[in-house]
Design a binder for these strands. Sequence first.
DNA 1: TTCATTTACTTGATATTTGAAGTAATTCGT
DNA 2: ACGAATTACTTCAAATATCAAGTAAATGAA
Lengths: 151, 151
Amino acid sequence: MSTADRESLRLWLRLFTTTTLVERQLDSALKREFSSTLPRFDLLAQLERAPDGLRMGELSERILTTGGNVTWLVRALEAEKLVTRCVSPTDKRAAIVRLTATGKRHFAAMAHAHERWVADIFATLSALDRRAMHAQLGVVKTRVRSPRSTP
Amino acid sequence: MSTADRESLRLWLRLFTTTTLVERQLDSALKREFSSTLPRFDLLAQLERAPDGLRMGELSERILTTGGNVTWLVRALEAEKLVTRCVSPTDKRAAIVRLTATGKRHFAAMAHAHERWVADIFATLSALDRRAMHAQLGVVKTRVRSPRSTP
DNA sequence: TTCATTTACTTGATATTTGAAGTAATTCGT
DNA sequence: ACGAATTACTTCAAATATCAAGTAAATGAA
């Protein structure tokens, strides 16, 4: 194992740990303040950006989870009256999910708090570092999305 | 919301996405090649580094999961003969978990492949970028571990 | 010592996530 | 237009993870 490999391994370990820690922090804050969770928040965030709603498949791609899980999440959020589902007029197989008015209000409140928490955590980095890290992550993300990622 | 806040949010989003993508890639490769998973691998990796074994509580701190989950994971790995548990001689409440010889062999094989996968993914970054990112993540990690992290 | 507290885990009930298999609607080639 | 392949989802079972008790051992103060 070369030095570069060793460094890659250390980097991945730290990337994973740090992300997990931030994730848990945000998740537990969402639970505490809003009785919600990060996955739910993420799903609502995607819908917020899509005024015309999204199909189940689009949701599952965007929040990086399986179709079965999206079905489950949407059912739960629907029960809480935060989203609605309707059959697509152009494709009867597809379901279109939208935020309800309640969902929008609820999300806006959460998003505001979430923003503050995230800003607070990453404020420890300089603007320069934040931009550098964003770019570096972009490279990794592209790499991991390309076809022959897993040899 | 200031520009800095917006950038923090974008950074967090990308951090989360990238980490999740790498995680899934590694997890599915471990499944495919070794019928294992990332959480199992992580647990074994901690034990590998601790020749004297670790207590359940130490494991749960290190792999960032709950005690109940560690009990579950260890039980599964024990059934596969990869780890053993014994009562601590100095504290009868505590259980000490160790790798078995089989566990060591099994882990060594996985670790080798895992190393290659990770090295391959992060080889897209320059050595300089890897070091920079490692340092930047260190700052965030420290921040998120400090007491008044969630205001 | 002796009992209240704390600590280390386990348990059991739930919640979440995955993956494979099933259903219905659409599309494509003919 | 017709059936085969594909696509969009749902379902169900199994794997994982959390949380809130519960149990037993260790600690510590009176």
